[in-house]
Design a protein around this nucleic acid. Structure first.
Lengths: 231, 231
DNA sequence: GCAAAAGTGTTACCCTTACACCCATGT
DNA sequence: ACATGGGTGTAAGGGTAACACTTTTGC
């Protein structure tokens, strides 16, 4: 960082944009809002908004997540994706946007408590191929999907697409939707249950989905992340 | 992105910071500049500077790379790392910084054409353990090193630490320095030469380093990236 | 009983690892 | 001749992929 004249630095507008991914109806979907004003009026866009001047970047992402999607941080995985700042990406003024990747389970009440006038889940494939998103959001979405696909290979993030308690079959369905492939149920089961630190048995089983009762798992061992002090 | 009042958005100062890594003397080193003014006067910091109001983010990183380190984009690998924007990360005002990761070969003229008053290569290990970098630059450096170590596992980026033409032994030395491990020369050779699209033989050999002449390779096949139109 | 999904066993294959061994140069 | 690093051969072990088979439910 170099010296500077505190009265002469150029001012930038700063936003956060959210790539909120989930698995619905067996396919990867993204949460989009419809723009009510120009530019790109009527077009679909990623949810997002301006960062407040005393607000942490992650806090801004969490706030927009709550305001525009009704999701809470406890429910989802949130990580920084990248920052987009081409000079003309917003035709009105210089806006730099820090994009965040959110992986969310399929929610019982889709997009509850939404701030935006019109928000809905849309299939990622059709959205990207139609090329009709506002601003550079198609590029951001593409990067987010690529990141999600890559991270599922070397992390336990796939569980972020599942509910609190889930079966191995439900987890496999999430992977199949994100990657667009079919996985062998037997080998997938052995792999995820055999990887230490990935799944934790709850001791409970379920028959939702039919067939033989399946063990329910959680993604992390709650005992390893105790709720701070307990008394 | 939501609606906004174009006269009411909060203004942010925007900088780029560079994590420039190289391998020197068999260890991973980072390029640091010494701050001449408060705050953190006299402390080491990452090179960087303000983004101009009509400048692309990557262009700002490339400009700072040239101004502060004398490196050209042709010589190095450059990728966005992450964006840091904690409200008090700069005690004077709200500054958000887009950090970039640069992987550079060990240069014959170290840090030529430097803009900063005092710049030098410093071992990463000692720098991180001393905890004396300005601002949140220790955190940025730590993230950059982690990214570099991770990417070497599933990409051919290790060659970014080598000169234009290099031997398998030189490439192995780069991996050993970044990871801090010893690799079996025989198996390493088989692996990198056997991975399609990683190395391209030049047909030339060298005896620098002693021993039997070693084949010289380049990282990419120039024929696959033709200089646009040629005829 | 039958369909459906869960879960186990088994085997072939591939990639990694460890290390014996040979090659081609400088001194 | 010898040291030095380059490069090949080979065999053991671990993980993956393919698939036969058993288990336990709902209907």
């Amino acid at each position: 960082m170099t010296d500077y004249d505190p009265h002469a630095y150029p001012p930038f507008a700063l936003t956060v944009d959210l790539v909120v991914l989930t698995v619905r109806d067996g396919e990867l979907q993204v949460l989009l809002v419809r723009r009510g004003v120009a530019p790109y009026q009527g077009r679909w866009a990623l949810p997002g908004g301006f960062v407040q001047i005393d607000e942490d970047l992650r806090a801004a992402a969490v706030r927009e997540l709550r305001e525009e999607t009704g999701l809470r941080l406890d429910d989802v995985h949130l990580e920084q994706l990248a920052t987009y700042g081409a000079p003309r990406r917003d035709p009105r003024m210089r806006v730099v946007s820090v994009a965040w990747l959110v992986l969310a389970p399929d929610l019982p009440s889709p997009v509850a408590g939404t701030d935006a006038s019109d928000a809905s889940w849309r299939p990622v494939d059709g959205t990207l191929s139609s090329g009709r998103l506002a601003f550079d959001h198609a590029s951001i979405l593409s990067d987010g999907v690529e990141r999600a696909r890559a991270k599922l290979e070397y992390s336990s993030l796939g569980a972020s697409f599942c509910d609190d308690k889930f079966t191995v079959g439900e987890l496999r369905a999430a992977y199949e939707a994100v990657w667009g492939v079919e996985l062998d149920p037997r080998n997938f089961h052995r792999k995820v249950t055999g990887t230490p630190g990935f799944l934790v048995e709850t001791g409970r089983t379920t028959t939702r989905g039919g067939g033989r009762p399946a063990m329910l798992y959680t993604a992390r061992d709650a005992a390893l992340n105790p709720p701070l002090l307990r008394g």
